[in-house]
């Protein structure tokens, strides 16, 4: 991946490919679960990959509740998994 886009997840540096969304890059990197559900703390990860299910909600550059499957990875992006609900 010569043309990788550098970004970080929970403080760890990774490379993404051009055109990758945050959800697809994190699935490629095996970074599941994305979050634990606020009602019953069950683990969740991307399910629909098309902006429908809202299971991939994640914190990006300090903004919570972002749909990872609709967001392209951009250089320097900082992703956090809200792992406590």
């Amino acid at each position: 991946m010569a043309e990788g886009i550098q970004f970080d997840v929970d403080g760890n540096a990774f490379l993404a490919q051009p055109g990758e969304t945050v959800a697809s890059a994190m699935l490629r990197l095996q970074l599941v679960p994305f979050r634990f559900h606020p009602v019953d703390t069950s683990p969740r990860g991307p399910f629909c990959m098309m902006g429908v299910c809202h299971e991939c909600l994640i914190e990006v550059d300090g903004k919570p509740g972002q749909q990872a499957c609709l967001l392209p990875v951009v250089p320097g992006m900082s992703v956090r998994r809200p792992l406590n609900g």
């Binding site: 599941v32 679960p33 994305f34 069950s42 683990p43 990860g45 991307p46 629909c48 098309m50």
Partner: peptide, 12 residues
Amino acid sequence: CTLPRVMGVGAA
């Protein structure tokens, strides 16, 4: 079906 690593075929 809410577990991670369960997805739609279209999603995959």
